[in-house]
């Protein structure tokens, strides 16, 4: 038996927003530790890794490990039926071929339940080794979203160049060229408005705008985003999810032919 209760179901709505542009379907692996998901997009260029710890939920029970293959368009239809302040309970029996979503209004006067069919998916997991990244950039997530959106008007690729002075995002194309430089913030009132850079070695890498823009669909989950880069390895874009865990996106760099 699997049962997870979440007092504010808006978190799960935001998680779904953050993955549904990259993935059509995904397997949610449920265990005693929590809910995990790892899936590559269709083109195998990017990967989504989601971790929601069991202790973040208001109630969590998972007697046996359970892998739920879910069509994300179907789940989106169901989650649209929930109010942001509804209390959500997800329930599935062991070896079930369906999962139930129950929404209760705060005053408990309205209770809805939606049963969704699970699907069988081929599980493809990538082994991602622990990596000491040369540059770790932390910045406001809204600023990162804005930069990706602005630069995508100029070209298909963004060059991210990090030195200890700051980080530069550049794009070029038919219209011309665009450069956005961010320096480390000297002092800020709010931690979430800070730009910080931990640099061992300077790094310059090129990435597809389209994927970066998809990653920024997670902006609502966290006020800060962390970019981890090393030469010749995928970029990691991480958003913390409050008391639950995180969503990480991995993106293979573009390389010169």
């Amino acid at each position: 038996m699997f049962e997870a209760r979440l007092v504010q179901c808006s978190m799960l709505k935001k998680v779904l927003e953050a993955i549904k542009e990259l993935l059509n379907e995904a397997t949610f692996d449920c265990s005693d530790a929590g809910i995990q998901l790892q899936a590559m997009d269709n083109s195998h260029v990017s990967l989504v890794s989601l971790n929601l710890r069991s202790d973040g939920f208001d109630k969590y029970r998972c007697d046996r490990n359970l892998s739920m293959g879910i069509n994300l368009a179907s789940m989106t239809k169901i989650m649209k039926c929930a109010g942001n302040d509804d209390v959500l309970t997800i329930k599935a029996q062991d070896n079930a071929d369906n999962v139930m979503f129950m929404f209760e209004s705060q005053n408990q006067e309205k209770v809805s339940d939606y049963d969704m069919k699970l699907i069988n998916l081929d599980q493809e997991h990538l082994g991602i080794p622990e990596t000491d990244y040369s540059c770790i950039i932390k910045m406001p997530s809204g600023e990162f979203a804005r930069i990706c959106r602005d630069l995508s008007q100029f070209g298909e690729s963004v060059v991210i160049s990090c030195t200890k002075e700051g980080v530069k995002f550049s794009a070029a194309g038919d219209v011309g060229a665009a450069n956005i430089k961010l320096a480390q913030t000297a002092n800020v009132d709010k931690e979430e408005e800070a730009v910080t850079i931990e640099m061992q070695e300077p790094v310059t890498l090129t990435f597809a705008c389209r994927y970066l823009n998809s990653f920024t669909k997670a902006t609502a989950l966290s006020p800060q985003v962390q970019l981890s880069m090393s030469a010749d390895v995928p970029l990691v874009v991480e958003y913390k999810i409050g008391d639950f865990g995180h969503i990480r996106y991995y993106l293979a760099p573009k390389i010169e032919e």
């Binding site: 990967l47 997991h125 082994g127 690729s157 991995y250 993106l251 760099p253 032919e257």
Partner: peptide, 14 residues
């Protein structure tokens, strides 16, 4: 123009 690499160039299936 640079070409897009595949993630599986860096990580292996487990």
């Amino acid at each position: 123009t640079p070409i897009q690499n595949d993630l599986q160039e860096y990580y292996t299936l487990v």
